[in-house]
Structures are given as structure tokens and as C-alpha cells.
Design a protein around this nucleic acid. Sequence first.
RNA 1: GGUCCGUUCGUCUAGGGGUUAGGACGCAUCCCUUUCACGGAUGAAACACGGGUUCGAUUCCCGUACGGACUACCA
Length: 512
Amino acid sequence: MSREVRVRFAPSPTGPLHIGGVRTALYNYLFAKKTGGKFLLRIEDTDQNRFVPGAEEYIKDSLEWLGIAPDESPWNPGSVAPYRQSERKADYMQYALDLVEKGHAYYAFDTAEELEAMRERLTAARVVTPQYNSITRTQMKNSLTLSEEEVKERLASGEPYVIRVKIPRKEEVRMNDLIRGWVMVHSSTLDDKVLMKSDGMPTYHLANIVDDHLMDITHVIRGEEWLPSAPLHVLLYKFFGWEDTMPEFAHLPLLLKPDGNGKLSKRDGDKLGFPVFPLNWENKESGETAAGFREQGYLPEALLNFLAFLGWNPGDEREIFSKEELIEAFSIERIGKAGTKFDIAKAKWYNEQYIRTKSNQELASQVIADAANDGMELSQEKAEAIVALTKERVTFASEMWSENKFLLIAPTSFDEQVASKKWNEDAVKVLEHYAGSIEAHSGDFDGATAKSLLENSAAAVEVKLGKVMQAVRLAVTGAGAGPDLMEIFAILGAKEVATRIKFAIESLPVAG
RNA sequence: GGUCCGUUCGUCUAGGGGUUAGGACGCAUCCCUUUCACGGAUGAAACACGGGUUCGAUUCCCGUACGGACUACCA
């Protein structure tokens, strides 16, 4: 019988959520929604040394910003609470002890120095992979080599210990990965991983199996970096006797650096000039900061669409997908196997696409806010006019203002290259006539009016309009390129345009 | 080093025994246009290599090369 799909995203709160983690969360989310299942979030905070305050909040904010908030989480618990591993601390020992009882795990008392000595010894003996395993454990201090009496004494005396899994010497461990197919590993290459640390906390390996079992997880969708430890996890399910409800595994291809090679890492953001985190991050204690996609001006729906296509595609030629369309189209079968380079140019393209689908009215608020930051007050009407003129030319919404401030600020200098080429007697004649005619003009000064008056002026002085258009633009905006000039005139108003033209005629000498 | 995973244009990818190997980003050219963009059109650009299997392999198998992950009392 098939259970309701339950998937989880399980980050550890050690800092800002990496963009690769965001994609993992997204695929989990999409799969859950596609199958009518549940998407849970579990905080894996079993490493007390690496805990970073604020990280959990950051994870929550990031997922909410992207619209992929979990159905169950520490702040919105379902029936399988707790959703923080630290809050389940007491339970794990019972499970570890159960394994000890069954002969699948054992106590180990080796100190860090002794472990190090063991590795050195093995390296010296030219053992290729020094590890704590079925062979070396016979020479270490553990409940397999010590007498029962001594083990009891050590435990009673409070001596620090760990619990290690007892990996069988010869066994083929098989796992059917949903993305990669059958993966087979021989148990002799696995080591006796620590299950319970000496601080009483479980390691990831134990906690993740116990929690997935307790939380009734049906599919584990996680990064490829976990593939090597998946056989251990399969073995643990078997040792616990939970094979029947063991989740299916899907190991996602990694996100790679855009240039060169290697996994995209947290430091790459600053180096490569684009964010690797969803939101800005600041650690007040360490002073560590990181740039976020949101603050750089990426729309959440654009980032989501971009991320979804990093390693997955719908199999047809569509590129633009809303969240709902992604859910509809998503399937694990269509996730690729190979690592994916992170191409920020494509992310920008997606952002451009999504900006264009926004209404002028919606975008106007951004322009108004940006202008206000520059100490300028903009009416809704004027802001919308600016949006209409600029939204198809920008990558980020903020550029509608930052790249187009000149609309409201009169130029004090003029592009020299354009001036030398286009500024001439004809242009000045047209502009002088035009300035006079718009000053005399009463009534609406919209784009069409501005244009017909300009055409009249050109005709009046017998000059072809096309010949002087660049000069007109230069006179009013100071630049040789930009949005539709007549619409700019409409925004500026007749009076301002005339003033600017007169200033330009005074400032710019006619060459030759 | 060992174990595991991978390899189609620069990038993201579709495809899959017989195709002009398709799309998108980026790039180039042209068109549109008052400029720059947008938009439209066009173009350059890929099956890592070597063996098999086969009438025929980019596709299936095996090697090789290259890349990646993992190799902690971190997740």
C-alpha cells in the first residue's frame, strides 16, 4: 500500500542557507505538492559547536520569501514534533542502545590521540584507507575487545565514550537511487561510523535515520554529497528492522562553480560577483556578511524558476514556469545526473522576463521608494510613466530609477562624443524654434503633442527631423541613448524641456 | 590514494540504434526604430576518447581520460 508522500528538508543552522540548499528545498517542495504530500522542515542542530544564532530564522525567512514554506516545521509543528534534533536528544541514546543490544553497535573509548595514532600506524603500514573498521576495531579500546567487566566500569566511572556502528565484514549493500539507479557498495569499504558522540548527541547518520523513521518520511531528496553515506543509512534501516518503511532515495546533482570546477561554495559569492544566498546575511557576533539575491533585486519567482531549471527540465521547450506550473510539471525522473554550473546570466534573463510581466502600477512603488531614497518625491502617475518607459530595458527593478534619474534631473554636462557628431547649426535652429513653440503651447503636452510640435519645428526651418533627433536627445538628457524621447518630454513637461534646450544651446558651442 | 557518481554547443539542456542532433542563455549579423534597449529573423557553436555489439552507434556494453563528491566524535 502506498503511504502519503512526506519529504523533508533538513538543514543545519550553521549560517545562511546556501543557494544549493535552497534548490534542494525547492525540489522537495515541488515533489510534495505534485504528489499531494507534505513538505517538512527539520533543523539538524546536533553539532552544538557550530550553532549560529539567527540561522534558523534565516532559513525560515528564505523559504517564505520564495513561497516554498514547509507544511510542518519547528515553528509550525505537525504531529511528529519535535522538529529540532536537539529537542529529541534524549531519544537517540535509546535507539543507539537498542543497536548495541542487537549487536549492531558497540561502545568505544578511544581518545582522539589514540585514533590519530591508529591512522598513523596504518598509513605507515601502507594501508590505503586507514579507518576504524572490522579489522582495526580489534585493536582498539571498545566493548568488542574489552571485557564486559571493564566496559561496565568505564561506563560507570563516567569515562567519555562514543557508540559506533558495527559494519559487517562482508556484505553487498544495494540501494536503488531514484535518479541514479542501483548503487552497490561493499561493506568492507565502509567504516564503523560514530553514531553517538561523547557529548551525548547523535551524529547526523543516526539522527537522520531515527528522525526520518519517526517522522514517517517516504522520500529522501538530498544533495549528491550524501551518496557515499547512503549505504550506511540503508544498513542502519536494516539493523533497526525498519526496511519495510525505509524511504526511497534521490541524490541531486551538485551546483558547481560557473568557471573552473568544484562545488559552489559559500565563499564564491564575493569572488564571482553574484550572491550564493537567498537573503542578505549578517552575523553580529563574527561580523560575517553575505549578499543575498533578494537584496540584489532578484524577484522570488524568477529565482525559483531559474533554480528549478538547474538540474531539472520539463522535457518540452518552455522556459518560463510559475510555481504552480513547476508543481504540475515536476517529476524526479526528469532530474539530471550531472553536476550543474551556476550561470548567473541566465538568472538575470529570468529576472528580466518576470519584471516585464509585472504591472506598471505594481512596479511604480519600487520607483517611488528608490526616488524617495534620493530625496525626490514622485507621484504615482509619474512613477508609472517612468515604469512604462523603462521596465523593458532593465534587469533589476531598481534600475528603473537608478539608470533613469536623468529624467528628472537636468543635465549639467553633455556626452562629448555625441555632441561632436550630432551637434550642429541645423540642430540648434530646430531646437530654438522648438523651444519657442512649446513655450507658446497651451494645453496637454503628451508624447504625441511633443512630437508633432517637434515635426513642425523641423519643417519650419527646413531640416529633416531624423538628422537632428540625436541632438535633441542630447540637449534634453545629456546622453545619446535612452528611452523614448517624446515620452520623456511628456514626463518633464513643456516648461522644463524648453529650459533644458536653452541651457544646451548656451553651453554647447557649434563646431566648425 | 581508496570508494562512489558523472561526461550532448561556452553555459542550462532535449533527444536516443538510422535525426539537417532540437530549444534556451550568452555571442554575432540583419530588420524594426528618433538613439539605446525590447521585439523579430538569421548565424557561429556540441554527442570526451578507444574498443566492442550491430547492416548501422551520439544512443547499448567494456575500458581509458577527464571532472566531481565522499573519505571527522560536521552536517
